[in-house]
Simulated assay, not measured.
Amino acid sequence: MKKLLLAAAIAVSILGGANAQTFPDKPVRVILPFPPGTGPDTVMRMVGERLSKIWGQQVVVENRPGGNGWIAMDAAKRAPADGYTLMQVDASQMAAHPHLFKKMPVDPAKDFDSVAPMYRTYYFVTVAADSKWNTVGDLLADAKAKPGAITYGSSGMGGNIHLGGAMMEKATGTKMHHVPYKETTQIYMAIANGDIQWAVGTASTTQPMQKAGKIKYLAVTGPQRTSIFPDVPTVGESKGPANYELQTWVGLYAPRGTPKAVIAKLNVDIAKVIQEPEIRSRLNAVGFEGLAQSPEEFQKMMNADSTKFGALIKEMNITLD
Rank of each mutant, 00 (worst) to 15 (best):
G236T: 08
W198T: 09
A95T: 07
G251F: 10
D130E: 14
Q186N: 02
A79L: 06
N160E: 12
P147F: 13
A190Q: 06
K211W: 02
R120A: 11
N19P: 06
N317P: 04
T42I: 07
N317C: 10
G17W: 03
A304G: 06
P24V: 12
D25H: 15
Y123K: 11
K146A: 12
T172G: 03
K146F: 11
A8F: 05
T206P: 10
I191T: 12
T234E: 00
H97G: 00
F288W: 12
K265N: 09
V61W: 07
N68H: 11
P80Y: 08
K308A: 10
P223F: 15
G194H: 05
K53Y: 06
R225H: 13
G240C: 04
E237K: 01
A166C: 08
V106S: 06
I10V: 14
F288N: 11
T38P: 00
L163W: 01
R29W: 13
T205W: 03
V61C: 13
I191L: 09
K146H: 15
R78S: 10
D25S: 15
G56D: 06
I215E: 02
M168R: 03
A141Y: 08
Q58M: 06
E296W: 07
P27L: 08
A96E: 02
F309N: 08
N134V: 14
A75V: 10
P223R: 15
K170T: 12
K77Q: 05
A199W: 04
E276A: 04
G164P: 02
Y244M: 14
L51F: 10
T22R: 14
V59T: 10
N317F: 13
E169F: 01
A166E: 13
Q186G: 03
I215F: 10
G201E: 01
P230T: 09
A76P: 01
P295R: 00
L100G: 01
G137C: 13
M104L: 12
P117T: 01
P233F: 10
P147E: 11
A116L: 03
M167S: 11
A171C: 02
K102W: 13
A75I: 14
Q21F: 13
T221N: 04
W249P: 03
P255W: 04
L266E: 05
T307G: 03
E237Q: 07
G83F: 05
V59D: 01
I161A: 09
A171T: 05
M44H: 05
K144T: 09
V273H: 07
E296R: 06
T202Q: 02
L283G: 04
K102L: 14
G173P: 08
Q186C: 00
T226P: 01
S52G: 10
Q275F: 00
G37V: 00
F309C: 05
T226R: 06
F112Q: 12
S306A: 08
F309S: 06
F298N: 02
G39S: 15
A143I: 14
D111M: 10
A8G: 14
Q299K: 06
H177G: 00
F101C: 08
M302W: 07
Y181M: 15
D90R: 05
E237P: 01
L15T: 15
L246H: 15
D142H: 05
G37L: 01
Q293T: 11
A91Y: 07
M94E: 00
I318R: 02
M302T: 11
G48R: 03
A285I: 11
L246K: 15
G39W: 13
K272F: 11
I270F: 00
G39F: 15
L283N: 07
M168G: 03
R78P: 00
I196R: 03
H162F: 09
